[in-house]
Computed example of a mutant assay.
Amino acid sequence: MQYLLLIYQNEVEYAKIDPATSQKMMEEYGAFTQSIIQSGNFKAGDRLRPTTTATTVRVRDGKTLTTDGPFAETREQLGGYYLIDAPDLDAALAIAARIPSARLGSIEVRPIWVYD
């Protein structure tokens, strides 16, 4: 089954991290990504640009409305994702717990809805 691992952390707090700590985390991400590629769990993954670059689109009464920024105000912002293949939720949760940002923010694990 496929799961989407959504990576949330506070952008303001992350910006305060010193360059050496940030570099170490990026190296950890590289190692983590390589490990799930090698294990066969990896399907896709990307880091996202900050929420200041986001635009939200809504259609109401046939009119398209756009708003700068993310959909909702939250303490943590969506910063990236991994799409993985795992045999069950427990395995997906174990993989999510290894994502470096789990120590600073949170990882939302969502099963992918497969249409038959």
Score class of each variant (00 low, 15 high):
residue 1 M to H: 07
residue 2 Q to G: 00
residue 4 L to G: 02
residue 9 Q to L: 03
residue 10 N to H: 07
residue 12 V to W: 04
residue 12 V to S: 11
residue 12 V to M: 08
residue 13 E to N: 13
residue 14 Y to I: 09
residue 14 Y to R: 05
residue 15 A to K: 15
residue 16 K to P: 03
residue 16 K to E: 15
residue 17 I to S: 13
residue 19 P to C: 01
residue 22 S to V: 05
residue 22 S to M: 05
residue 23 Q to C: 02
residue 24 K to P: 00
residue 24 K to V: 00
residue 26 M to V: 13
residue 28 E to C: 08
residue 30 G to W: 09
residue 30 G to H: 06
residue 32 F to G: 07
residue 32 F to W: 08
residue 34 Q to S: 06
residue 37 I to M: 04
residue 38 Q to W: 00
residue 40 G to Y: 03
residue 43 K to Q: 00
residue 44 A to H: 03
residue 44 A to V: 04
residue 44 A to K: 01
residue 45 G to F: 09
residue 46 D to N: 11
residue 46 D to V: 01
residue 52 T to A: 11
residue 53 T to S: 15
residue 54 A to V: 11
residue 59 V to H: 01
residue 62 G to Q: 02
residue 67 T to S: 14
residue 68 D to H: 14
residue 70 P to W: 06
residue 70 P to Q: 14
residue 71 F to T: 08
residue 72 A to S: 13
residue 73 E to N: 13
residue 74 T to C: 06
residue 75 R to K: 15
residue 76 E to H: 07
residue 76 E to W: 08
residue 77 Q to H: 15
residue 79 G to T: 01
residue 79 G to F: 00
residue 81 Y to A: 02
residue 82 Y to E: 02
residue 83 L to C: 04
residue 84 I to N: 08
residue 86 A to K: 08
residue 88 D to H: 09
residue 90 D to K: 15
residue 92 A to C: 08
residue 93 L to G: 01
residue 94 A to F: 03
residue 94 A to C: 00
residue 94 A to L: 09
residue 96 A to Y: 05
residue 97 A to L: 08
residue 98 R to Q: 13
residue 99 I to Y: 02
residue 101 S to L: 11
residue 102 A to T: 14
residue 104 L to M: 12
residue 104 L to P: 01
residue 105 G to T: 12
residue 107 I to H: 13
residue 108 E to L: 00
residue 109 V to W: 07
residue 111 P to Y: 05
residue 113 W to C: 10
residue 115 Y to M: 14
residue 115 Y to N: 05
residue 115 Y to T: 10
residue 116 D to A: 14
